[in-house]
Simulated scan of single mutants.
Amino acid sequence: VEDLISTAGSCIDVVEALRQAGAEVLGVASIFTYGLQKGLDRLAAANVTNYSLSNFDAVCDIAAAEGKIRPEDIDRLKKFRANPSDESWRD
């Protein structure tokens, strides 16, 4: 069980160690995932399925529904998620 998945590096390290020890890993459970493309790609490459209780899209939708953020800010937040290194989402 992972608390947070961003790039999936730490959970894949654990999965690989478990597999080397002979365990059959059915997937990874996490409390939250950002759904970053790098993490999704790494999980797919390692043949690991993630089951999360919540995710970035759900938090954005709830925050907008509760007036914590403006609905138009969701696109900017998703642009950040798509490429956190590209700071154009700040515009």
Rank of each mutant, 00 (worst) to 15 (best):
V1D: 15
D3G: 00
D3Y: 13
L4D: 11
I5F: 13
S6Q: 09
G9Y: 01
S10L: 05
C11M: 07
I12Y: 10
D13H: 10
D13G: 09
D13C: 10
D13R: 08
D13N: 08
D13F: 06
V14F: 14
V15L: 11
V15P: 10
E16H: 12
A17W: 13
A17F: 15
A17C: 06
Q20R: 07
Q20M: 06
A21K: 12
A21I: 11
A21Y: 06
G22E: 05
E24S: 06
V25A: 03
L26D: 09
L26W: 01
S30H: 03
S30C: 08
I31Q: 01
F32P: 04
T33C: 03
T33W: 00
Y34N: 10
Y34M: 15
Y34T: 15
G35A: 06
G35W: 11
L36W: 01
L36N: 05
Q37R: 15
Q37A: 15
Q37Y: 15
Q37M: 11
K38S: 11
K38R: 04
K38Y: 14
G39F: 05
G39Q: 07
G39A: 07
L40K: 12
L40N: 11
D41M: 11
D41V: 09
D41R: 14
R42P: 05
R42E: 06
R42V: 12
A45T: 01
A45H: 03
A45C: 01
A46K: 04
A46S: 10
V48W: 07
V48P: 00
V48A: 01
N50M: 01
N50S: 03
Y51K: 13
Y51A: 08
S52Y: 10
L53E: 05
N55M: 00
N55D: 08
N55I: 09
F56E: 01
F56L: 03
A58V: 04
A58M: 11
V59Q: 01
C60G: 04
C60P: 00
A63I: 12
A64H: 05
A65K: 14
A65N: 09
A65T: 08
A65C: 08
G67N: 04
G67Y: 15
G67M: 11
K68D: 09
K68I: 09
K68N: 06
R70M: 10
R70A: 11
P71T: 04
E72G: 15
I74W: 13
R76A: 07
L77N: 07
L77S: 02
K78L: 13
K79A: 14
F80M: 04
F80S: 08
F80A: 02
F80G: 02
A82C: 09
A82V: 13
A82L: 15
N83P: 03
N83Y: 09
P84E: 10
P84K: 06
E87K: 15
W89Q: 03
R90Q: 11
R90E: 08
D91N: 15
